[in-house]
């Protein structure tokens, strides 16, 4: 068991940590402010990083299971297809300063994608990643991690957790990998604990089953099926696999993994145009079922981390907790 006590860092802690990881060859992904919005991006220098943010437009899934990811290439040689897997970039990556909710979303991705047989594309990236959680400095009306009990990073969510409080940096290791990096910083132990609050995870299964048909009809008829909630959701993991023929050579091409989601008809349409969950209501409801019932049943974790992106992006302000009636 690693030492999980809190340490205290000086003013330059974040910069030191940044440079230490950079010197170890990590490619660093951090929040950057662009045209008024924060985005997770690859950065070179510490001064590009802006940790004073609420939420980033994109989320860790964009890097760990990117959209339109190439799986393999094929080409026909004398009538026989030759298949070559696309190499996954085997580089160490560091998420520098993601929030607890997004770090928790990685736990959910892990549960689904690392469950044997492992999704090898994801697992290579995941094994090579180092996650530094930076505790939120502020929140807004869209955040609901406290209501969902996802405010505190779960075991397995990150390697290091940093809390900025009273002009001091509190740091703790959350994994063996994190402990090794922390040791190199040679910090003093903290005499206080920066965060003591406990949050309970609500019984979302129970909440879901209390939602009546009228509520599902009401919200699903409002929903435009625009997909903003899915594209921004850090725990939406579902995908399609499609073939793209090369524009240069009709006998060659690429197999690509793209994101798809249960709210779209195409997701469950089988040959002959049979659609399972053909009504909009069934599809709208299923997304909630997956996140608030199925994932909790399989993994004893909520399938939603309360990051608030879906609410922020929804043109009709549909809030999962309004639907479930779990708002405090």
């Amino acid at each position: 068991m690693y030492d999980d006590s809190w340490y205290i860092g000086g003013e330059s802690l974040l910069e030191e940590l940044f440079n230490l990881l950079k010197s170890k060859g990590y490619r660093i992904i951090a929040p950057v402010k662009e045209r008024g919005y924060h985005v997770l991006e690859y950065v070179q220098e510490f001064n590009e990083v802006d940790l004073n943010y609420i939420r980033t437009i994109n989320n860790p899934r964009h890097f760990l299971q990117p959209p339109n990811e190439r799986i393999l290439k094929w080409s026909y040689v004398n009538g026989k297809p030759i298949v070559n897997p696309e190499p996954v970039i085997n580089a160490n990556i560091c998420f520098f300063g993601i929030h607890p909710c997004d770090a928790n979303s990685i736990v959910i991705l892990d549960k689904i994608l690392l469950n044997p047989p492992e999704d090898t594309l994801y697992s290579i990236r995941r094994m090579n990643s180092f996650i530094i959680i930076h505790d939120c400095l502020k929140s807004d009306e869209y955040c609901f991690c406290e209501e969902l009990g996802t405010r505190i990073p779960w075991d397995g969510s990150g390697d290091m957790w940093i809390v900025e409080k009273n002009d001091r940096y509190y740091v703790k290791a959350m994994s063996e990998k994190g402990r090794k990096i922390l040791q190199e910083l040679s910090l003093d132990k903290a005499d206080t604990v920066p965060i003591n609050e406990k949050y309970t995870i609500p019984n979302t299964i129970e909440l879901f089953h209390k939602v009546n048909d009228e509520v599902w009809n009401d919200y699903s008829s409002k929903c435009l099926l625009c997909g903003s909630c899915l594209a921004s959701c850090p725990t939406c993991v579902c995908f399609d696999i499609v073939d793209h023929i090369s524009s240069l050579d009709p006998l060659a091409g690429t197999r690509i993994r793209t994101w798809n989601s249960c709210i779209f008809k195409s997701f469950t349409t089988v040959a002959g145009d049979v659609v399972f969950r053909s009504s909009k209501k069934d599809r709208f409801r299923f997304r909630y079922l997956h996140k608030f019932v199925i994932i909790p049943q399989w993994y004893s974790l909520p399938g939603c981390v309360g990051c608030g992106r879906c609410v922020m992006n929804c043109p009709l302000d549909i809030h999962p907790l309004d639907v479930l009636g779990g708002k405090k």
Partner: peptide, 20 residues
């Protein structure tokens, strides 16, 4: 049962049933 499938190994979600 028959469903749409992309991965075949319980990842893509296309064949996920209401029963989980």
């Amino acid at each position: 049962l028959e469903r749409r499938m992309q991965c075949g190994i319980g990842k893509c979600g296309a064949c996920l049933l209401d029963s989980g």
